[in-house]
């Protein structure tokens, strides 16, 4: 007969279980919350075995017991001291003087270029024929040349100009600066960045493809394809975040309706979670 007292006793938690189906491991653990209620925690993870060949001395060191402040702690990284940061896109390529300028004043509108050479495709300082984005952008440009790609440059820029130095060079706390919200932080909220939502995307497109597709418009902070949690198959849409709003607007104009891998992309602003 089943022991009915066991269910009444909140101290007794069922043992954690782990089952693996189709390479996906379901880990069920139980814990008590602050009101001593039982909480079932289900985590579904895909485990990937990574093998690494190391020398004997390195392998031996991996088995060393912890010491000092970490004495007796379990193996594996402690979340208090170790976190994995956001993916950084690092590409080794010449950093031109022009890029340096842009970095110094990222939001300043480009002033009249005068007689300088301007690429018709990417607006860079070189001849159109030498444009590194010639292949990818030429097609895009032709799609809606008549809309006038320059139009949105002035929008949304009003307050930002005054951002760097306050009036009279006085220090202005980041929170009170025009255009800036709170100060910058190491962990940037993903809603802070101008983000585009790309739908009717080919299911073959990877994060990197998406980044490449949007890179010509400006610095892409994040590009990701939304995938099914279990099958890892693309759901046919994704998000691209730009560092600057202007670049995002440009990309929105140019890429909405652009053909990509036999599908026509639909690009719109990504709305914050609550508005969707």
């Amino acid at each position: 007969m089943k022991d009915w007292t066991a269910e009444e006793d909140p101290e007794e938690l069922p043992p954690p279980s782990e089952t693996t189906v189709d390479g996906i491991t379901t880990i069920i653990t139980w814990k008590l919350d602050e009101h001593d209620r039982k909480v079932k925690v289900t985590r579904r993870v895909r485990r990937k075995m990574q093998t690494q060949n190391v020398s004997h001395t390195v392998a031996e060191r991996r088995r060393l017991p912890k010491f000092g402040d970490d004495k007796g702690k379990a193996t594996g990284p402690d979340r208090k001291t170790t976190i994995v940061g956001e993916n950084i896109h690092f590409k080794v390529a010449p950093v031109s003087a022009k890029a340096n300028e842009a970095a110094a004043e990222p939001d300043a509108p480009k002033l009249a270029a005068g007689k300088a050479v301007i690429c018709r495709l990417c607006k860079g300082g070189h001849f159109t024929a030498k444009c590194p984005f010639k292949d990818s952008l030429a097609a895009i440009e032709n799609v809606d040349m008549d809309d006038g790609g320059e139009a949105p440059a002035a929008d949304g820029m009003g307050g930002i100009l005054a951002r760097g130095a306050g009036a009279g060079g006085k220090y202005v706390p980041p929170g009170q600066r025009a255009g800036g919200g709170a100060g910058e932080s190491m962990y940037r909220n993903r809603d802070d960045l101008p983000t585009l939502r790309i739908t009717s995307l080919s299911t073959d497109a990877e994060d990197e493809d998406l980044r490449e597709l949007f890179a010509p418009f400006g610095k892409v902070a994040r590009a990701n394809v939304v995938r099914d949690r279990e099958t890892r198959e693309s759901k046919g849409f994704g998000f691209v975040s730009f560092e600057s709003r202007r670049d995002a607007e440009k990309a929105l104009q140019k890429m909405n309706g652009h053909g990509y891998d036999s599908l026509i992309l639909s690009v719109s602003w990504s709305l914050p979670r609550e508005q969707r």
Binding site: D69, D70, T82
Partner: peptide
């Protein structure tokens, strides 16, 4: 005042030298 030693592969802290 601390000196720390870390495993570089996963960021686990091996210990502190106090």
């Amino acid at each position: 005042v601390g000196v720390n030693v870390w495993f570089t592969s996963n960021g686990e802290r091996l210990g502190t030298f106090n």
